[in-house]
C-alpha cells in the first residue's frame, strides 16, 4: 500500500514537470518548428534523385538510415535467440531449483 502511494506521488510529480514542459514546447504542427529544417527538407525534395523511389519513409529506413534498420533486424534476431534459448534451456528435466548444489 505504501509502495502504491509513493509511486503515485512520484508519478504525479513527474507528470507535473512533464506537463509544464509540454506547455512550453514548440507548437504542435507548426511548419516553423525546429524539426522542419534542412534535414527533413532534403528527404522530401531529393528522394527521387537520391534513391529513385517515391516512398520517403522506406527510403529513410532502408537507405539513408539503413544502419539503424540493420540494428533493428539484430534486435529481432536477439529477441528470437533469447526466447528460443530461454525456453529450450528450461524445457525439461535437469532443472535445478537452488543455486547451491
Amino acid at each position: 500500500m505504501i509502495r502504491r502511494i509513493v509511486a503515485t506521488i512520484m508519478i504525479l510529480l513527474l507528470g507535473t514537470v512533464l506537463l509544464y514542459m509540454t506547455s512550453e514546447m514548440p507548437r504542435f504542427g507548426d511548419p516553423a518548428n525546429p524539426t522542419n529544417n534542412e534535414l527533413s527538407a532534403r528527404y522530401m525534395e531529393d528522394v527521387i534523385e537520391d534513391v529513385n523511389i517515391p516512398n520517403i519513409v522506406t527510403a529513410i529506413i532502408t537507405d539513408y538510415r539503413a544502419y539503424d534498420t540493420l540494428g533493428e533486424a539484430t534486435v529481432l534476431f536477439a529477441a528470437i535467440a533469447s526466447v528460443l534459448a530461454v525456453l529450450a534451456m528450461h524445457s525439461d528435466s535437469g532443472r535445478g531449483t537452488k543455486l547451491d548444489e
Binding site: 534513391v51 523511389i53 522506406t58 527510403a59 532502408t62 537507405d63 534498420t69 533486424a73 529481432l76 534476431f77
Partner: peptide
C-alpha cells in the same frame, strides 16, 4: 527501382 532496397525489404520481410 531503388537499387538494393528491394532485396533488403525482401530480407526484412522474410525475417519479420
Amino acid at each position: 527501382t531503388g537499387g538494393f532496397i528491394m532485396p533488403v525489404t525482401l530480407a526484412i520481410g522474410a525475417k519479420v
